[in-house]
């Protein structure tokens, strides 16, 4: 088992008319909660989709847990999309059952535990859930998997502060950092900061900074927000 959960080697991803990811190489360590920060359109979602095997690099290679990230990487990765991906006609409980059928590593017992922790109603259909509750249900689905890498694209976006708090608490409670690594993209930097071990800053399709949060505060005496501003300005 390699020390790294993720490795990007000279990765380029071109979309028509633009380089979304521009020759990026980096590795991510295991057992950490990692934040992916950067302005809109900087390439965060593309980086996450490359890890999830949903997007293929134009050049270079992406490996997750030692395996090339392609369509068959789903067993190694729990991916939470920024989009609304729940079937509207399933109840919360049925959604859990459906996901348990999709993924071998889905822990149904844990899912039910998280459901009560999050105070989600089991028998309400997804289409009748509020945005906050749909947000919770999506997190629940990702956290119930025992995949070595959990990817979350904007799990806090557009949710009220109480829901964000519950989501952050459930991240602390239900991920197993001895065996899992979490990567989440977010703009809610101040709120996410206490749970992050390290951050990766992205700008214009390139990695413009990467450091431990303790280092940022200790050595540089900066909050994550100030560090981001400095990093992005370079």
């Amino acid at each position: 088992m390699s020390d790294h959960i993720v490795e990007f080697k000279n990765v380029i991803k071109k979309y028509p008319g633009q380089n979304a990811i521009d020759n990026v190489s980096f590795v991510l360590p295991r057992g950490k909660m990692i934040g992916l920060v950067g302005p809109n359109g900087s390439g965060k979602s593309t980086i996450i989709k490359l890890m999830a095997g949903l997007v293929h690099p134009t050049k270079g290679s992406v490996t997750v847990n030692g395996k090339t990230a392609n369509r068959r990487i789903a067993g190694e990765v729990a991916y939470l999309s920024e989009l609304d991906v729940l079937y509207p006609f399933f109840t919360a409980k049925e959604t859990i059952g459906f996901n348990a059928g999709l993924f071998d590593d889905f822990d149904q017992e844990k899912a039910l535990e998280i459901m009560s922790f999050m105070q989600l109603e089991p028998d309400k259909k997804a289409k009748n859930l509020s945005k906050g509750n749909r947000g919770r249900l999506k997190i629940l689905l990702a956290l119930s998997r025992q995949a070595p890498l959990i990817l979350m694209d904007e799990p806090l976006a557009g949710l009220d502060p109480l829901v964000r708090d519950i989501i952050i608490k459930s991240l602390i409670t239900y991920t197993n950092l001895d065996e899992q690594t979490v990567l989440m993209s977010t703009h809610e930097v101040a709120e996410a900061e206490p749970v992050l071990d390290m951050v990766v800053a992205v700008r214009d399709g390139q990695i413009c900074g990467m450091d431990d949060v303790d280092n940022i505060r200790g050595k540089h005496g900066l909050s994550l927000m100030d560090w981001m501003k400095e990093t992005m300005a370079k």
């Binding site: 057992g31 950490k32 602390i172 206490p194």
Partner: peptide
């Protein structure tokens, strides 16, 4: 470690430290 992490709202790795 985990209880302390949840109480303080921080990452378990931080509490280990």
């Amino acid at each position: 470690v985990r209880d302390m992490a949840v109480q303080s709202g921080v990452n378990p790795n931080t509490i280990q430290r």
